[in-house]
């Protein structure tokens, strides 16, 4: 997004000032409203479509497969596809690696079927359009798709070490997965101020971006800094890191509550 110098300095002055004025009047911690659709892909075990108010949109599918967990220990795999970006682009790879790292920390217990076999779930993310750094939107999409996921119900024995048999499933009954994946927040640092969910024009003047993850009621690693633009990026005061983490700690429960609601 290219802005004029006058626009940029107007935005920067407003955002970095003591009143922390955002161009759309939001409070520093306020998100843009999102709209969520779930369960619209019958051939997937779970699906979601999340749309932000600026038209950024992300579609997530969850599909499962039965694997021998002694051979394949990684039971969750995230794949990211961003329209208009190559699969090996920096943006796609960095987002995919962050999500995979993060999701690896989720408790896998619910995926275990028998002593030998587990479900492996494939989370495919398709970003149809994005106007600002899309990781927050993606994490919402994954969150909704995974919470909407229903898996086939096991009818065979849990203990299959003695008797050699493949897991068998009920023809109709499904069991909700009931797993909660981590949320990821983007923060923009402008001057001495920190903002949650920066819009495109806010990102354009941010001195730095911060990606903070939230899982099971606490801020978790990885924590990353990102450049939200090419022109304004500077070093930042480590104290802002604390401010950012505090902001997330303070408001993430409210966001989780809204997502669950």
């Amino acid at each position: 997004m290219s802005l004029s110098i006058a626009e940029e300095s107007f935005l920067y002055d407003s955002l970095s000032g003591p009143q922390r004025l955002r161009p759309d009047g939001r409070l520093p911690h306020q998100f843009r409203p999102v709209e969520v659709f779930t369960d619209f892909l019958p051939s997937s075990d779970g699906s979601s479509r999340v749309i932000a108010s600026d038209g950024s949109e992300c579609i997530v599918s969850v599909k499962c497969k039965v694997v021998d967990h002694t051979v394949e220990p990684d039971l969750i795999q995230v794949d990211v596809d961003i329209a208009g970006e190559r699969d090996d682009s920096l943006l796609v790879e960095s987002i995919a690696s962050l999500l995979n790292k993060l999701i690896g920390t989720v408790d896998h217990a619910r995926l275990q079927l028998t002593k030998k076999y587990s479900f492996k779930i494939f989370i495919d993310v398709l970003v149809l359009s994005s106007f600002s750094y899309p990781i927050s939107l993606i994490s919402f999409g994954v969150y909704f798709a995974v919470s909407a996921t229903q898996l086939p119900k096991l009818v065979s024995n849990f203990d299959d070490l003695e008797v050699e048999e493949l897991p068998m499933f009920d023809d109709y009954d499904l069991v909700p997965l009931e797993m909660r994946t981590p949320l990821v927040f983007t923060l923009a640092l402008v001057g001495k101020n920190v903002f949650l969910d920066p819009a495109a024009n806010e990102s354009a003047v941010a001195n730095n971006g911060l990606v903070v993850s939230w899982s099971a009621g606490t801020v978790v690693a990885p924590l990353r800094t990102i450049a939200l633009n090419n022109t304004h990026v500077t070093g930042f005061d480590p104290e802002l890191l604390q401010v950012g983490i505090k902001l997330v700690e303070q408001h993430a429960p409210g966001i989780v509550h809204a997502l669950e609601g």
Binding site: S43, S44, S61, D81, A83, D87, D124, L126
Partner: peptide
């Protein structure tokens, strides 16, 4: 044309791009 990996019943391993 982007045929997603999850578009078929059986998920494909590779991108169709």
């Amino acid at each position: 044309v982007n045929v997603t990996k999850f578009s078929k019943f059986e998920r494909s391993r590779t991108s169709h791009r």
